[in-house]
Design a protein around this nucleic acid. Structure first.
Lengths: 150, 150
DNA sequence: ATTTGTGCAAAACGTTTGCAAGGCG
DNA sequence: CGCCTTGCAAACGTTTTGCACAAAT
């Protein structure tokens, strides 16, 4: 945790960027979260206590993403989800369309396949996002009793 | 092509929905396209000649997606991409962040892995989306000469 | 005749931006 | 001190919506 903050400070300095109060607060929060979150969620968590503006949230998430501290995912809700990748290996997501719960699963096998395909197409891979949509165990049970969802 | 239209008519009737002029025009266009497209692109292709409104485009795409005639992808540009899946097997996408070109590649191996993981987690798979972001061959070359893009 | 679909314009949504003021190095 | 960053509010682009009218079965 502290380690992440040190790395962040170094990365910022390396690029001539500043280690401001807002960036500290935002990074602190992100590094302490385990779930996926949206910019708006982060904003509502920080605005009152820590006086961080919406624009700063968005701008800081961009910075953190470009430096590789967070990963960005598009689960097709018209909004972006972020996650801290500190100490995580890349993984795939099961997204339950019933309750929006996100289950992660490892992806080393898939990663190898992607890299093989990329080489074949001379494509330079930057990042990838594997999203599987469906129903988690609980929601699948509910659907049986009272259907009517997408 | 004709075959798709017949299937669409049947599916609509099955659900008590109507086979309107607008839906015919939109479906015709979609079934004849091979590339991925956005709602706005489709709108500008059809509005003048065929007098289809923007709202109808969006609503019809929803209907076609819910019936499985088109697949929806969110590549994270704040807009959705659609593709007709007539006669296609599911596949993955390489998305070039330089020129937004989309390269498809087959995914049978990946599909098997996903199904295996889903079984393990008791997750009911509905659809999945594998998106690899990076640079296509041409854009990678350009970047070497004149960098400055994300 | 009934029910679903359409067009329009306005609203909603998440995100980005311009600019003046503030703060870090 | 200079440059980077912030906050605000307005702008943005895409998508959704309410409602009155139109059209399909």
């Amino acid at each position: 945790m502290r380690q992440d903050m040190i790395k962040l400070k170094e990365e910022l300095e390396l690029r001539g960027l500043k280690f401001t109060r807002q960036r500290k607060v935002i990074a602190q929060k992100i590094f302490s979260m385990r779930k996926h979150f949206t910019a708006e969620e982060l904003y509502s968590m920080l605005r009152k206590k820590h006086h961080v503006s919406r624009a700063t949230i968005y701008r800081t998430l961009d910075v953190l993403a470009s430096m590789g501290f967070v990963e960005v995912h598009d689960f097709g809700q018209g909004r972006r989800y972020y996650e801290s990748i500190s100490g995580k290996t890349s993984h795939c997501h099961f997204i339950c369309t019933g309750c929006m719960k996100i289950i992660e699963f490892p992806s080393d096998e898939i990663k190898d396949i992607i890299n093989r395909m990329a080489r074949k197409h001379n494509f330079t891979v930057n990042r990838y996002s594997i999203n599987v949509y469906g129903l988690c165990e609980e929601c699948a049970k509910k659907m049986k009793k009272q259907p009517g969802d997408a």
